[in-house]
């Protein structure tokens, strides 16, 4: 226990990086996932096709493979990404967007078709129909599944530990090595710092959910 407190500054470095990965990838995934969902419900066949393709590849590929692709394969074929966190952020974003997309799409489908018809009937285009009428109403059903996705993302950032990013899990591994007598305490410390991110995320979701509620 004492060694955990002693290692606190080290933990905090790892924690900061994990928080950074989760926040940036999370924000990018929300944007990209929503765009993909818009593609998947678009009247244009080609957009629907692109959306479906990206989602199926993203969600059906193990995250480690996505990392390998961006960290090793892309440089191998001459596309050099700057080292550090960028490949990790791209891999996490591509992977998570697929799940965000499906959560948002289920929300879109939960809004009655009459809402979109009424929007189109007053002359709104398909993008306006989506952004002004359908998505605001989809939000309320989408928040709980989206938070699941973001919590999963937070934990998935640990995959980056295997790709030279010293985030929380990599930090914990190092600490376990440095304090062999306190391995369990060190790993519990790691778990605690993940909870510091995920539990408030759940609480924030609850408050957003209450705020976007309105009766039909």
């Amino acid at each position: 226990m004492d060694s955990v407190i002693e290692a606190l500054p080290v933990y905090l470095d790892g924690f900061r990086l994990t928080l950074y990965l989760a926040a940036i990838s999370g924000a990018l995934s929300l944007v990209l996932g929503t765009v993909l969902a818009a593609f998947r419900v678009s009247p244009l066949r080609s957009l629907r096709l692109i959306g479906t393709l990206v989602v199926e590849v993203g969600r059906n590929t193990p995250l480690t493979l996505v990392f390998i692709f961006f960290v090793f394969i892309l440089p191998g074929i001459g596309i050099i990404l700057p080292l550090g966190t960028l490949p990790a952020i791209i891999a996490l974003t591509v992977y998570t967007s697929a799940f965000v997309c499906e959560a948002v799409r289920s929300g879109i489908n939960s809004v009655g078709i009459g809402q979109a018809e009424a929007a189109r009937a007053i002359g709104l285009g398909s993008v306006q129909t989506l952004t002004l009428v359908v998505l605001p109403q989809a939000l309320r059903t989408v928040v709980p599944p989206l938070i699941n996705v973001l919590i999963a993302l937070t934990k998935n950032t640990s995959v980056a530990a295997g790709f030279a990013v010293v985030e929380l899990t990599a930090t914990g591994r190092g600490l376990a090595r440095d304090y062999p007598a306190d391995v369990i305490w060190m790993l519990l410390g790691v778990a605690f710092f993940y909870l510091v991110i995920t539990i408030p995320a759940g609480a924030i979701a609850g408050s957003i959910e209450r705020r976007v509620v309105f009766s039909r």
Partner: peptide, 19 residues
Amino acid sequence: AKLRSDVGMVFQSFNLFAH
């Protein structure tokens, strides 16, 4: 969209924007 803006429509189930 332009054409629809010139054609008013009233639905059986009202379809007012709920939000």
